[in-house]
């Protein structure tokens, strides 16, 4: 009996070390690439009429998947739970229009940036007196919980930051006068403007880079993905995607 337990423990240890030794890239090739995203961030990702996740990130990951020869599965979940899900290995990669920040770099690795663009401040058309970040003092600023934009808003002295679960809720709050301003990536702001004609962009903020996030131990997978992104940039596929989604 006791011998049996020892054997089982040994086998368990061997099995565990086997998993550890296995590279992330090999694991993904065997089991498919599990991509976590939060489909409330058009045009990076959103749900279509059939509740299918679509967007720039989806097309990009499918192209990368084709380059690497792996099957890509998208898993939609709440934005603020994405990094914890990555760290606890529920997903292999985050593709969520994620801004590359120093703070996030402490926990995860980022791929080569695939988009650059500024954040913008959006208000309702009737609003006056907001033309730069400092003007947000004393105003309600809607953002998404855990977003890089939340961090920007928190840095404005006197601004009342309202963090919503979904970016679409933040936009709705602005449109229904529950907030005075919204800070969001330019491309997403454009998508919201199409949806809510009473909103306008009042200021462009600093340029930020967007990347895919991976676990730090998965450097082999990251290198393979970086190479795929570089190839897509060179052969013009990336520009085609940008033209399709960010026009």
């Amino acid at each position: 009996m006791r011998k049996g337990i020892v054997v089982m423990v040994l086998m368990g240890l061997l099995g565990a070390s086997g998993v550890l030794a296995q590279s992330c890239l090999a694991n993904v090739k065997a089991n498919g690439l599990k991509v976590g995203t939060s489909p409330d961030y058009p045009p990076f990702e959103s749900l279509d009429k059939n509740n299918k996740i679509i967007g720039f990130d989806v097309d990009l990951l499918n192209l990368i998947g084709a380059e690497l020869g792996v099957k890509v599965n998208f898993i939609g979940q709440s934005f603020d739970g994405l990094i914890p899900a990555l760290l606890s290995k529920k997903i292999d990669l985050i593709a969520a229009g994620l801004t590359i920040t120093e703070e996030r770099k402490k926990s995860v690795d980022f791929s080569r940036p695939y988009i650059s663009g500024p954040n913008v401040i959006i208000t309702r058309k009737e609003t006056t007196g907001i033309s730069k970040l400092e003007d947000l003092a004393g105003k309600k600023v809607a953002v998404q919980i855990g977003s890089a934009q939340e961090k920007i808003a928190s840095g404005v002295k006197g601004a009342e930051v309202k963090s919503y679960n979904l970016y679409t809720d933040a936009a709705l709050a602005l449109n229904t006068r529950q907030a005075d301003a919204l800070i969001v990536h330019r491309f997403v702001g454009r998508a919201f403007l199409k949806q809510y004609p009473d909103l306008k962009v009042v200021a462009e903020l600093n340029q930020v880079d967007t990347g895919l996030a991976l676990r730090k131990e998965c450097s082999d997978l990251r290198r393979a993905i970086d190479a795929a992104i570089e190839k897509l940039e060179k052969n013009g596929k990336m520009d085609e995607l940008a033209a399709k989604w960010f026009k």
């Binding site: 603020d80 990094i83 914890p84 760290l87 703070e103 926990s107 919980i145 855990g146 939340e150 963090s163």
Partner: peptide, 8 residues
Amino acid sequence: QLISARTF
């Protein structure tokens, strides 16, 4: 949630 979104 706010703290866990910041600290993961």
